[in-house]
């Protein structure tokens, strides 16, 4: 892990000033900075098992759409979900989310070991990928993770879809209204800890971050760094 500051990189989270003010420690991640942890915070791993919000906006992700997109991704060796609003973990730990029959979103893993997002981005061209169009999700969307046993209850305050774990299975997607902004909600549990990835338009990043933090107050939730998520993923609770 290499410590860094957001301003050392051209690419920054829309929330980096908030993180700096909250005494975040940053590490380098794919040519940018992601919050490792916040200084002075108590055990962030325990917090993440109860309720915590993490900003993953600088992690790699890419999207493709068009009638040829499923076939093209299949030719690249990707494993696709059978139906829309489902996600599948890939061999390199990246995650492919099927948003519709002809639209797919590829998310990097938390440890940044996955190579698929970069490979697909390099291989794609309008000429070579028949009826497949690039959707540069890194620039259009912010990416948060809400983790912990109370995550679904906190989301129920700002979302009409029933996200309780016995109703909304792991690796399932809901494209819906979250605190009155459009969002993609993807359940991606970290071992036994419920975790929801939240992706929304970058222009709403500041608003959505604070709206979710506000919904979390009742459950004593707060923001943590990516190190807590990695620890949860590696060590089943």
């Amino acid at each position: 892990m290499t410590t860094t500051t957001p301003t050392h990189h051209l690419r920054r989270s829309q929330l980096y000033r908030w993180h700096v003010n909250a005494l975040a420690r940053f590490e380098e991640a794919a040519g940018s900075a992601v919050v490792t942890e916040y200084a002075g915070a108590d055990n962030e791993v325990n917090q993440a098992t109860r309720l915590a919000l993490v900003d993953l906006s600088t992690l790699p992700r890419v999207g493709f759409k068009g009638p040829g997109a499923p076939d093209w991704l299949d030719q690249q060796g990707a494993q696709l979900p059978d139906s829309p609003n489902q996600a599948v973990r890939q061999q390199d730990d990246s995650l492919i989310a099927r948003l519709s029959d002809y639209e797919l979103l590829i998310l990097a893993d938390l440890n940044l070991n996955s190579t698929l997002p970069a490979i697909l981005q390099d291989r794609w061209s309008l000429a070579s990928a028949n009826k497949t169009y690039s959707v540069p999700r890194s620039d259009s969307h912010c990416w948060f993770a809400l983790t912990g046993a109370d995550a679904a209850m906190a989301l129920s305050k700002v979302c009409g879809v029933d996200l309780r774990t016995h109703k909304f299975a792991d690796q399932t997607i809901a494209q819906t209204s979250l605190a009155r902004v459009n969002a993609i909600i993807l359940r991606n549990d970290l071992a036994k800890t419920p975790c929801f990835f939240l992706l929304s338009d970058v222009s709403s990043a500041q608003y959505l971050w604070h709206a979710i933090l506000d919904a979390m107050v009742e459950f004593h939730g707060r923001s943590v760094g990516i190190a807590a998520l990695r620890a949860l993923e590696a060590k089943p609770q």
């Binding site: 609003n85 519709s100 009409g160 879809v161 809901a174 494209q175 819906t176 209204s177």
Partner: peptide, 11 residues
Amino acid sequence: PLNGPRNIAEF
């Protein structure tokens, strides 16, 4: 047809 039953405010 894609996402299931939703509040009509989403449409």
